[in-house]
Write a protein that binds this DNA or RNA. Structure first.
Length: 534
RNA sequence: GUCCCGUUCGUCUAGCCAGGUCAGGACACCGGGUUUUCAUCCCGGCAACAGGGGUUCGAAUCCCCUACGGGACGCCA
């Protein structure tokens, strides 16, 4: 099973002299010769993200174009944050979009298992081998020492980097510490001199000084590998030919190239795609933009329009067609056509495209079916009916009462949101709620209720008074169906965006939180409510 | 702060690799037409090669510098 670790004899050249030129030649030859296998490697630590879908789309298109396969691998080496819940959601969300993989934890394949936590043996064997070859070493430094070191380096305007403290430990000292049961991590050795040159399919040669590269931890004290080690070991074992991933990885690619070299393996071809951006050009983040795939599903977007839109972020078909399917994209896909400037995710254009799908791509009957599968179905109506029934006099009261549960977001006036309270105070409460809601594990009525009840106590307010602005934020009215049930039905993605919209309305009215105000609120929040999550 | 990556209309982009068209299309916006309203649809308009230097008869395109933007610098991925 661990035969892959041996490295084939023709890979020897990687162990000895390893000039940049050689590496580049090898990269080129690799492009021509190998069966194409790409992968998408999400970490199951949160809600399914559009960035994941974006990368998956181009990995799939590339694989399809070249008659290859795309693999889905779950990167769950962070035991503290990974959840099965998140894993299931990611798979489900990608499938909703119509993205399919040839091998993965759900459908199996020849190169399994497809969950990194189940490949621990391989990772540890690779670490062991690096240790034996002298390419890696144990480090006993405490987090406190590392923290102090980092602070000092930042203060001295140096690049934060491990100082090699444990490199000088003798064999006896190491043994002694291990016998005492001192926790340790394993770090990779990085050349002190020279530069790493690697080839990026889209950018050509990239050169980074080894001085810039940290002695990266490859195995944590819990015995789990870090991303850097695990992704190299798994990509090699799964025979990944092309690593197509986000630009954020460029600066750690030297670590990966070095690991391939030290293990005597041939590296894959690297292609770093641009990152999706917020309207302010920063990396797409949920604080500024809906980033959850489920947001778009729940707000009534069509999966094929969504995928089509992602396909036009950074890419144009040769004939500049703007409506196209995954199949059409894959047929003509040319990775070199990717443009490298980070595209801003523009919901207005997505909406226009989605509208075109209704008008041109699917029949009116089909639209009716989509609508019914979405929210106009018995199951969903029944859930709402439980809340609406006591408030109904005629059937026609139902839709006005529940309209906000079918909208992307309701409309209301900022002054109504503020009401008789202070605008700044409303901002404050909305922000605290936003943070508190991050802590919810299961988005249901009970947990939502307890968040707000807790808040009322902390703020020494009547629940009724606390909730008033939230009724507006969520339903657009002071009179509505019960708040917690409504939020539960809307789901976390839609609900959170509504709170953010309310916050934005206040700041547009000049009553939002300033940067300073936000900072002090955060401090106050931490001391009263505890640490923030997310 | 250090390093890396990037930069064509407000936004998504074509053109760049193989220098030579009024720098093309789409969204948004503005105006007009069709439509009982609105939307759709059609027509028109606005609007960009970040700046500077070089190479060249000729530069959005090739080279260099600057500026700006982004990313990375975790026992996260």
């Amino acid at each position: 099973m661990l035969g892959f670790l041996q490295g084939k004899s023709n890979d020897r050249r990687f162990c000895s002299s390893f000039s940049p030129e050689k590496l580049i030649r090898l990269c080129y030859s690799r492009i021509m010769s190998t069966a194409v296998r790409t992968r998408i490697a999400p970490s199951p630590t949160g809600a399914p993200h559009v960035g994941t879908a974006y990368m998956a789309l181009f990995n799939l298109a590339f694989a399809r174009k070249h008659g290859g396969k795309m693999i889905l691998r779950i990167e769950d080496t962070d035991q503290a944050r990974s959840t099965k819940n998140s894993e299931d959601a990611i798979l489900d969300a990608l499938k909703w979009l119509g993205l399919e993989w040839d091998e993965g934890p759900d459908c199996g394949g020849e190169y399994g298992p497809y969950r990194q936590s189940e490949r621990l043996e391989m990772h540890q064997a690779a670490v062991q081998r690096l240790l034996e070859l002298g390419h890696a070493y144990r480090c006993f430094c405490t987090p406190e020492r590392l923290d102090a070191l980092r602070k000092e380096q930042i203060a001295n305007k140096e690049t934060p980097r491990y100082d090699g403290h444990c490199l000088s430990l003798s064999q006896e000292q190491i043994q002694e510490k291990m016998d005492r049961g001192e926790p340790y991590v394993i770090r990779m050795k990085v050349p002190a001199e020279g530069e790493c040159v690697f080839l990026d399919e889209l950018r050509g040669e990239v050169r980074i000084d080894w001085k810039q590269i940290d002695h990266q931890i490859i195995q944590k004290s819990d015995g789990f590998p870090t991303y850097h080690l695990a992704n190299v070991v798994d990509d090699h074992a799964m025979q990944i030919s092309h690593v197509i991933r986000g630009e954020e990885w460029i600066s750690s690619t030297p670590k990966h190239v070095l690991l391939y070299q030290q293990l005597g393996w041939e590296p894959p071809v690297f292609a770093h795609l641009p990152l999706l951006r917020n309207p302010d050009k920063s990396k797409l983040s949920k604080r500024k933009n809906p980033t959850g795939i489920y947001y778009y599903r729940d707000a009534g977007f069509l999966p094929e329009a969504m995928l089509n839109y992602l396909g036009m972020m950074g890419y144009t078909l040769p004939d500049q067609r703007e409506v196209f399917s995954l199949t059409e994209l894959a047929e003509s896909f040319e990775i070199k056509r990717m443009s490298l400037g980070g595209p801003i995710f523009d919901i207005a254009k997505l909406k226009w495209l989605n509208g075109r799908y209704f008008r041109e791509q699917i029949s009116p009957d089909e639209v009716v079916d989509r609508l019914m599968n979405w929210k106009a179905n018995k199951e969903h109506f029944s859930k709402i009916m439980g809340l609406a029934l006591p408030r109904l006099e005629t059937l026609s009261d139902f839709f006005p009462l529940s309209g906000h549960l079918f909208q992307e977001s309701p409309e209301y006036k900022t002054e109504d949101l503020i009401g008789k309270s202070e605008a700044a105070e409303v901002s404050r409460l909305l922000k605290i709620a936003e943070w508190e809601l991050e802590k919810i594990k299961h988005w249901d009525r009970e947990q939502l209720a307890s968040v707000f009840q807790n808040m009322a106590e902390m703020e020494e307010m009547k629940l009724k008074d606390l909730l008033r602005p939230f009724f507006f934020a969520i339903s657009g009215s002071a009179v509505s169906l019960p708040l917690f049930d409504g939020m539960a039905l809307l789901g976390p993605d839609l609900s959170r965006v509504r709170l953010r919209i309310a916050l934005n309305k206040l700041s547009e009215a000049g009553s939002g939180l300033s940067k300073k105000g936000l900072k002090s609120l955060e401090k106050e929040y931490r001391s009263a409510y505890g640490k923030r999550i997310g």
